Each structure stands twice: as structure tokens, then as C-alpha cells.
Amino acid sequence: MKRIALLASAAAVLAFGAGVATQVDAWGATGHRTIGVAAVRALSDELPAFLRTPGAAAEVGELSREPDRSRGAGQPHDRERDTAHFVDLDDAGHVMAAAGPTLDQLPVLKSEYDSALLAAGIKVDDAGYLPYAIMDGYQQLARDFAHWRVLNAAEASEADPGKRAWYREDRLRREALILRDIGYLSHFVGDGAQPHHLSIHYNGWDRNTPNPKGFTTSRQTHAMFEGAFTRRSTRLDAVEAAMPAPALDGFDLRARTAAYLTRTHATVTPFYELEKAGGFADSDPRGTAFATERLAAGAAELRDLIILAWRDAGTQSVGWPVIKVAEVEAGGADPWLAMAGED
């Protein structure tokens, strides 16, 4: 059965916890909020002050849910966006099957990825394109930061009151966009920490593949873990305590994305082993530790990508006529035409 159809039907009929229907897609509200809030709360003072506030953390936490909340708008909106939340890898790490690429073999463009899958006889919509959603979100955030850095520097140095007021207004608009775009990036980075979003075994062990260990094939597996279990067993403070230290050296976006998702793919079999051993029963510390570690991995990756996007922004050029961010911040260039527009 196709993944999207399966998730939609499951969301319609399954109920967990206190009889509340839980949508079977990505982390539930608790997981996505936790990842967004924990990441923003972990930002250092290298980042601008507007991001390092309780309000910003709460805003990102709520906006982290938005890619799920936009579902149901109709076609082509839904089909194009639904498949951004996952990439289904087989047990050897190939997209869907041995004919598919591995994560470190992905072409530069999503259109090239789609073509490669079709050439291998793999349906694009069945495979998903989560790596591209993460990379796209990072690049958008870096552009947001690049514009913000120019606007902030220009506002501080501009003598003309009218221009200074425009810079301020545009900076505030950009800050709202930055929070929104961090929320969207948070969602897809969070999806990338959930083992079911990296596997053909996305809702119970795939019944069309060998299952020598007798793992569950229940269609309730996905929602049970990321929704009801995560909601009742994880805490923000425990997730924050479990976040690894920042890893910011030697950054390459494509390699980093592949490595992050590969680490999550390595947790698929351990998840099913733990489920078989009863680790996701109420109050079982093994399941709580697993869910906490996965949320912490997502929050740490998001924290690092925000910092890296900020640094990346300082090397960029923006506007038209094009102007270098570093030159404006150094006081060596007037960005008015580049920012406000020449015509």
C-alpha cells in the first residue's frame, strides 16, 4: 500500500491515549515542539538577541508543526509536500531498493533525483525526498540571515531618518520570516530524527520483506511511538540534557545531511528490537531513553544548522545590485539600492 494512503487511513481510524485521534506522520505535536524549543534555547550569544528569547523559542516550537498542519489543502499542494517528510531506505541504505541511490549518492537537484528514481523503476512519491527538504530549508535560512545582517548593520549606521525607519521595518519583517523558516527547518530536521521516516519499515516491519526476527507488522507502530508514547514519556529538560555538544567544524551541507540521516537509519532495527522486547510499554525506561535520544539528536542538529546558517550568511552577497554582507557590516558599502530596490 502506498505510504501516503496508509498514513491518511491510519490517521482517520486509529486512536491512542485518552481516545484522541493521532495523525500518523512525523513526530506528533509534542515531539516537534520539543525539538524546536530545545534547539532555540540552546543557541549561544553568537546569534542575534531576537532569537535568544523565551518568546522566540515558543514561536519556533509552534511553527515546527506547520508543515503537518498545512496538509489537506488539495492537489497539487498535498502531493508535492507530503513526500518531503520522509525518505524510505531499504536495510542496506538504498532509497527503496538496491537500484536506488544511497544518501551519499544523491544528485545535486531534486529533479535529477526524481529522474534517477524513475530510471530505476522506483515511484518518486513512494520514495520521499526528505534530504532535499532539509537542505532547502537550511539554504533559505542562510539567505534570511544574510538579509537580516545587512539590514541590522545599515539601520545602525544610517543617518537619514526615513531610510533608517525603512531598514528597521524590513528588519522586523525579516525576523518574522526567520522564525517561520526556522520552524519549517525544525520540522524536517525533526522528521529526520524519527527512524520510521528513514525506512521502508515505516509502520511495522514491511510485510513484503524477510522478517527473520519476527518484528511487529502492526500498522499502529508508527503513531504509537511518535505520538502517544512520546507525549507521555518525554520531557523537555531531559531532551536538553541529552543533546550532544555542537559539531560545527568541516561543514558541508550535503555530506552533513547524508550523515545525519544515515545515523537515524541505523536506529531502525534497534527500535524494532526494543518494541519486541516490550520497551515501549508504560513507564519502561528503555523506551523513554530511546525517544529522548532521538528528540535530542533532532534538536542538536537543528541548533547546529541554525548556527551554521548564521555563519554562512556572513559570506554571502544579497540584493540587487549585489552587495556583500561582510562589506556592509564593515561599514564599507551603502546597501540602500540593494535592499530597497532601484526601481
Rank of each mutant, 00 (worst) to 15 (best):
L177W: 10
I178M: 12
I178P: 07
L179W: 00
D181H: 11
I182C: 09
G183R: 05
G183T: 10
G183P: 02
S186Q: 15
H187E: 08
F188C: 08
F188H: 15
D191K: 04
G192V: 06
G192T: 06
A193C: 14
H196E: 07
H197G: 01
S199R: 07
H201Q: 07
Y202P: 04
Y202N: 11
N203A: 09
N203C: 11
N203G: 10
N203Y: 07
W205Q: 10
D206K: 13
R207H: 10
N208H: 14
T209Q: 15
P212F: 13
P212N: 13
P212G: 14
K213S: 15
K213C: 12
K213H: 15
F215D: 14
T217M: 14
T217P: 05
S218I: 06
T221L: 06
T221D: 12
T221H: 09
T221I: 04
H222T: 08
A223T: 15
M224K: 07
E226P: 01
E226T: 09
G227S: 09
A228I: 01
A228S: 15
F229I: 00
F229G: 01
S233Q: 14
S233L: 00
T234Y: 01
L236G: 06
A241Q: 10
M243Y: 13
A245E: 14
A247T: 12
A247I: 13
L248M: 07
D252I: 03
R256M: 12
A258G: 13
Y260A: 12
Y260C: 09
L261V: 09
T262D: 13
T262S: 14
R263G: 14
R263V: 10
T264H: 01
A266R: 06
A266Y: 02
A266K: 07
A266P: 02
V268D: 05
V268A: 05
V268Y: 02
T269F: 04
P270V: 04
Y272M: 04
E273R: 06
E275L: 08
K276A: 11
A277M: 06
G278W: 03
G279Q: 02
G279Y: 02
A281L: 03
S283L: 12
D284K: 05
G287W: 00
T288L: 01
T288Q: 08
A289Q: 09
F290M: 05
A291R: 02
R294L: 03
A296C: 05
A296W: 11
A297Y: 06
A297S: 12
A297R: 11
A299D: 08
A300P: 10
E301R: 04
L302W: 05
L302F: 06
R303S: 05
R303L: 08
R303Q: 09
D304Q: 01
L305E: 04
I306G: 01
I306K: 00
I307M: 11
I307T: 15
I307C: 06
L308N: 06
L308E: 08
L308D: 10
A309C: 02
A309Y: 09
D312Q: 15
T315D: 08
Q316E: 11
S317R: 14
S317Q: 12
G319W: 02
W320A: 12
V322D: 09
V322Y: 07
V322L: 14
I323L: 01
K324D: 02
K324V: 00
K324H: 00
